[in-house]
Design a binder for these strands. Structure first.
Length: 433
RNA sequence: GUGGCCUUAGCUCAACUGGCAGAGCAUCGGAUUGUGGCUCCGAAGGUUACGGGUUCAAGCCCCGUAGGCCACCCCA
């Protein structure tokens, strides 16, 4: 057992997993490109103030989950690892004057996020998100666009049964009155509240709504709903969103208990999930509208909306839906067209020379670099899933090698000068046959 | 940050009531001259997560720490 290991809550993505995450990123790139979202990369570290101000000082994410980096000198500022991508992207929007670009500015990024909480399956301290943001458009049409994009991502990576939960949590115009009504309601039932919930009532009353405490279920069912207390503008926005979703034939469920954990959200709250799964890490993605965030971070008042999808959890769901994950170990997805082996166990020079010629010709080729006897080399080539073995033997004197079809078990002599051409023909036959 | 369960070879798991740590798979090597997948033989791989304690004797009992999982908190 090695004493050095990946830090708690982090993990190595071994080749099978790493390839899968890369594929997610490729799907994300193709998709967002078509929709007109342009890539952006912001630092993994930001001034802590970006998150404290943007996300909110009293949120769990900032209070207890932020990876803080201590200042190195008295003068330097406190930094933190990004717990989510939106605050950093909005910071970049303001810093680089993107309000002068055609609005909305559609941006996307995929990368690791960091939260210092207690790890569990599907919940890591370093996790990956595919994220999209549309900044500068107030209308509900862009809300619908982004939701449709999210669902399409799930479809393209092969997740079955992805669904959308929606809610509207109002804005600064209507939320104070709603909160008042909410607090008044729970105060009226203070005797029925568990202690932790009573504490929340003072600190963050919205959170009472999505409590998992069974004792709260009955109460929450009759609690005031955000959607019933929206101001005229927010109500119109929500109705507009529903109209657009209807026109796009996108099903959704309104979830009155869906209140996002970050302060910057206004109006539309979104969550993606797959129904009927075990365990608690059900959310595969979430996001919403943040019409006040740009201003909070020093820009002009600018609306925005976005979401992030958790790639670790999507990988988990794909495993569940396939029954079991493919076996670990060397995969055959990048199986070579040919492995160059030799009857002379010592002749790595000849093998490497032929292999590099094949590589230069664009083939997937590799040389067996060991000093094993021929049988072992062929055995290894077969295990690697190679289609052909190029066997170097006495025929080298006549400028020939044996080209062996490892699947058919047949072989013939081929002139070295014809080898690349022959292999290309054979490889394409294998791919189409 | 709170509580519960768990940790034996790279992986999946054995090891009686406390009595010399094992198997399968994977890896590497061999089975008479240059031919793989099957089979046979062999090797390597362990401070039983780590640190203490009890005992003639600890993988097994006790305490602590770390990590994983589960439920909270919360979220992706």
């Amino acid at each position: 057992m090695p004493q050095l290991r990946a830090p708690r809550g982090t993990r190595d993505l071994l080749p099978d997993d790493a390839a899968r995450f890369l594929r997610f990123a490729e799907v994300a790139r193709g998709l967002t490109e078509r929709y007109g979202y342009r890539p952006i990369e912001t630092p993994l570290i930001e001034q802590a103030a970006v998150f404290e101000r943007g996300i909110g000082e009293v949120t769990d994410v900032v209070e207890k989950e932020l990876f803080r980096i201590a200042p190195r000198t008295e003068e330097s500022e406190a930094w933190a690892l990004r717990p989510e991508p939106t605050a950093g992207i909005v910071r970049a929007y303001v810093q680089h004057g993107m309000q002068t670009w055609p609005q909305p500015v559609r941006l996307t990024t995929t990368g690791p996020m960091f939260r210092y909480d207690r790890p569990q399956a599907g919940r890591y301290r370093q996790f990956w998100q595919f994220d999209v943001e549309a900044i500068g458009d107030p209308g509900p049409a862009v809300d619908a666009e982004i939701i449709e994009l999210g669902l399409r991502f799930f479809a393209e990576v092969g997740v079955q049964g992805a669904e959308v939960l929606l809610n509207s949590i109002g804005d600064p115009a209507c939320r104070p009155a709603y909160l008042e009504a909410l607090v008044a309601f729970y105060r009226g039932h203070a005797a029925e509240l568990p202690p932790t919930e009573r504490d929340r009532l003072e600190r963050n009353p919205l959170r009472l709504l999505d409590s998992k405490d069974p004792a709260m279920a009955a109460l929450n069912a009759v609690a005031p709903r955000t959607v019933d207390h929206l101001c005229e503008a927010c109500a119109a926005h929500f109705a507009g969103l529903r109209r657009h979703l209807y026109a796009l034939a996108i099903p959704y469920r309104i979830e009155p208990g869906l209140v996002r954990g970050l302060d910057y959200y206004t109006r539309t709250a979104i969550e993606f999930y797959v129904a009927g799964r075990e365990g608690q890490q059900q959310a595969l993605g979430g996001g919403g509208r943040y019409d006040g965030l740009v201003e909070l971070l020093g820009g002009r008042p600018t609306p925005g909306i976005g979401f992030g999808l958790g790639l670790d959890r999507i990988a988990l769901v794909l495993d569940e839906q396939r029954g079991t994950a493919e076996a670990a170990g060397p995969g055959h997805h990048d199986a070579p067209d040919a492995v160059v082996v030799s009857a002379d166990p010592a002749d790595t020079v000849g093998r490497l020379r032929i292999a590099t010629e094949l590589l230069a010709a664009g083939l997937r080729a590799r040389a067996d670099l060991g000093h094993r006897k021929l049988g072992r080399q062929l055995e290894a080539a077969g295990r690697d899933g190679a289609h052909f073995a190029v066997i170097l033997g006495d025929e080298l004197a006549e400028g020939q090698v044996q080209l062996r079809d490892l699947e058919a078990g047949t072989q013939r002599a081929v002139a070295i000068s014809d080898l690349a051409r022959e292999l290309k023909r054979g490889a394409s036959q294998h791919r189409h046959g």
